[in-house]
Simulated assay, not measured.
Amino acid sequence: MSYRPIKAQKTDTVLHNNASLQRLVARAQIIDRLQVLLNQYLQPAVRPYCRLATYQDGTLTLIVSDGHWATRLRYQQKRLLQQLQSVPEFNQLSRIQFKVRPPSQPNTPPPRSIELSEQAGQMIQASAEATRDPVLRKALERLAQHAKK
């Protein structure tokens, strides 16, 4: 059996020839439009922490990034439900469900940076010169090199 790579195709061609991909894109566009409508009724402070997951069978499921914002939204749930029911896209809405899902943390730690003033660098260098332990002296000298000049 030999491997034959698939020829590259234009995005439009792939999209028009694949029915399941068309349904997926259409569903994503609907959710995006509903998110825009939802944002009109959410308080500005909560918008970055809340996103629409699904809207099926009269249940609107919202993903909230932490419990604090979920609690605040639960207190406003009745008002939000009434406001959204007045919008034609949400006229079948009967319940709002909140799920807390913290954002995934990046695996790489943030880069470490040391910023020392020139005076701090001079003091660390003086401490290095006064130290008898050679390992500690080298460590202090490396640290002193990070001082602004």
Rank of each mutant, 00 (worst) to 15 (best):
D66F: 12
L143E: 02
A53H: 14
Y3I: 14
Q76A: 15
S65H: 14
Q40T: 13
L143C: 09
N107R: 15
Q105G: 00
G121K: 00
P109V: 10
R132C: 01
Q35T: 01
A130I: 02
P111H: 07
T59R: 13
V64A: 12
Q43W: 03
P102E: 06
K99Y: 09
L34D: 01
G67L: 06
E129M: 14
V46P: 00
K99H: 13
F98L: 15
R74W: 08
R95Q: 15
S113Q: 15
C50Y: 03
P134K: 12
P110E: 13
M123K: 15
Q29L: 12
A130T: 04
A19G: 01
T131S: 12
P103T: 09
N17H: 06
P111C: 02
A28D: 10
D66E: 14
V46R: 03
T61R: 02
R95L: 10
H16S: 13
G121W: 00
A147W: 01
L60C: 09
P109F: 09
D133S: 02
R95T: 05
G67C: 04
Q29T: 07
R23K: 04
V100M: 08
S20V: 04
P134W: 07
P110N: 09
R33I: 07
N17K: 03
Q35E: 02
A53T: 00
L52W: 06
P88C: 04
K78S: 00
S127R: 04
N91E: 10
P44W: 00
I63R: 12
L15P: 06
Q56P: 02
P109E: 14
K149G: 08
C50S: 12
E118R: 13
L116T: 03
P48L: 09
Q105R: 10
T131N: 04
A126R: 09
P111F: 05
T13W: 01
S117W: 02
L136Q: 05
Q85S: 10
A120C: 11
L81D: 08
I63P: 05
Q145C: 03
A144Q: 03
S117V: 03
S86G: 04
P44E: 04
R51K: 11
E118M: 09
L52T: 00
L84A: 10
N39V: 00
